[in-house]
Design a protein around this nucleic acid. Structure first.
Lengths: 209, 209
DNA sequence: GTTGACAAAATTGGTACCAATCCTATTTAC
DNA sequence: GTAAATAGGATTGGTACCAATTTTGTCAAC
């Protein structure tokens, strides 16, 4: 089943790693699928070398799994892994709550609110990937308020590990609606500098999704 | 300056990534040093391909930095980065304190104590690398008690980011002695199930080093 | 003596080829 | 009819080669 559909011109210069990752996150490659080098080579119009490097990186990120002389296949995440990562994210995102509240200016709050609005706006019109990225942007903006440059990349990595199948995460529309509402509540909590409330919200938000 | 010294036979089968990482951590390659592919090829007796993959991985881990058409050089860590990573580690390692105390059996405690002893024992006779690894083993055992498989790798990654020059971390012997003492105090805190004390100890321990 | 241009050497990074390995389909024996 | 064996095809992964780029060394001009 050698796919022959080539991607759009705008992706021409982007890194193959991100393109493959995006396709995995969009559900193009289902968990367990074997990623044949030739197929990827054709699909993304890259050399064998770049494809191999991309696969190696994704294997390091635990997005795909490498079996010697067999190839790479999309990782099948078990329930335990999801729980473990959720727990870590809760520790980190609640851990910075105090710092975020202390540092957030009124302008920061309106930026956050805007991002929360954008997520909510995509609820009806947006694709799964757009929703995923809007959600990512909101959390990223929140984390950035802590002023910890390293934390940013740590959480990004964590998210990538579970996001193998974001489609399966948000099954129902009602769940996404809850998420959107929680985003706004988080913004309010930051605005009112209510740290305990913010922490509770974050824990709920990460666990349920 | 093409080095020609080959490593021992036992390292023959190990991954080049870890060998290079170890040499960086041991201080063989000082921060800022350019890692030429040919040199590494000879030193570790590997093909060009494996060396490139290893460098790419280390670049991803932020241990080295990649400059297109120039090569890879050992990363120069600034003070801010160290503080940021220390903060993350504190959030995570104190965050699991309650779980560790709840789950730790008396056998787990004695294992920890043994590791703390080993670190202390190496204080006089051990090399910097041995000390580094003994310290790593202790913290790894502590983290494992939380039963979070993902956390293990997250913290390992974090440690690697700053450990570019572990030699410079432990300047004086007195500091290492303090670390050894704190390890034992942590074990005691776990044994007595004193969570606040354990958290305080961890924060002190990570910050000072 | 210093600065700038130019040539030579060295290094990186991509492409192509080929061996080793694994999967699949057909054939053969029972 | 079923199961094992074998041949064929496909895929991975390593090695070697070569082009593009950069750095170093040399020479000339000011």
């Amino acid at each position: 089943m050698t796919g022959s559909l080539t991607v759009t011109e705008t992706d021409e210069e982007r890194d193959a790693t991100q393109l493959i990752l995006q396709d995995i996150q969009s559900g193009v490659y289902a968990p367990g699928t074997w990623l044949k080098q030739i197929d990827l080579e054709i699909r993304y119009g890259r050399g064998r070398n770049e494809i191999r490097r991309a696969l190696d990186r994704l294997a390091l990120k635990r997005v795909v799994e490498h079996v010697p002389n067999r190839g790479y296949h999309v990782y099948l995440s078990d329930g335990k892994q999801w729980d473990d990562i959720a727990e870590i994210r809760i520790m980190l995102e609640t851990g910075i709550a105090g710092k975020v509240i202390a540092r957030a200016t009124s302008m920061d709050v309106s930026v956050l609110r805007e991002l929360a609005d954008r997520f909510q706006g995509l609820l009806h019109s947006g694709t799964v990937l757009e929703l995923y990225e809007a959600n990512l942007a909101f959390h990223r903006a929140y984390v950035d308020l802590a002023g910890n440059a390293e934390l940013h990349s740590v959480i990004a990595e964590l998210r990538q590990r579970t996001s193998s199948a974001p489609v399966s995460q948000w099954h129902t529309r009602s769940r996404i609606e809850v998420s959107a509402a929680e985003h706004h509540q988080m913004v309010n909590a930051i605005e009112q500098k209510d740290e305990p409330w913010l922490k509770t919200l974050i824990e709920q938000h990460i666990r349920q999704k």
